[in-house]
Amino acid sequence: MAVNERIPGSEYLEKFPGGEVILAKSQDVFNWAKGASLWPLTFGLACCAIEMMTTGASHFDIDRFGSGVFRASPRQCDVMIIAGTICVKMQDSIKRLYDQMPEPKYVIAMGNCAISGGIFYHDSYSVVKGAEAVGIPVDVYVAGCPPRPENLLNGIIKLQEKIRSTKARVT
């Protein structure tokens, strides 16, 4: 079988010389599979969540990237898209949801609010200044107020790139 350029993940495959066998590093295959099925948590905090819903709908179709399976339980999720303003009363719940997600887990901070507090940075008594202030490590920042759906998709692609370039940890 010729290794076709259009096969997904073909960049990790190598044709066995003279045979009908292909070779790939297991770490690369796992990473590719991990990146191609990022299930997000059904989790919206403010206006950015509306844009996240749009991304999930047919116009932008997040399913093309394998991220359309929004799960209602943190136990089944790979990525937490923090979409919106983090309020003082919400921060403990967010931290708990993040802690409940199984490894490997990733976080996308979507919108200026989730990055730094955004327009609520000054003079706001109820808004936490971003996801990192809650103690959640962020993998990808998607800037905008709100970010366009294309921008969120770009964030997911960036996260996939990050996952695919992860090297196996020797412990």
Binding site: K89, Y121, Y125, V128
Partner: peptide, 25 residues
């Protein structure tokens, strides 16, 4: 009704101050 029960401040008073509250410069 809105803010955490543990607070003792009243946020819309002009002299409001709290940890993490950043006034507009």
């Amino acid at each position: 009704i809105l803010n955490p029960d543990t607070w003792s401040e009243h946020p819309l008073r002009k002299d409001f101050k709290r940890d993490g509250f950043i006034p507009r410069p």
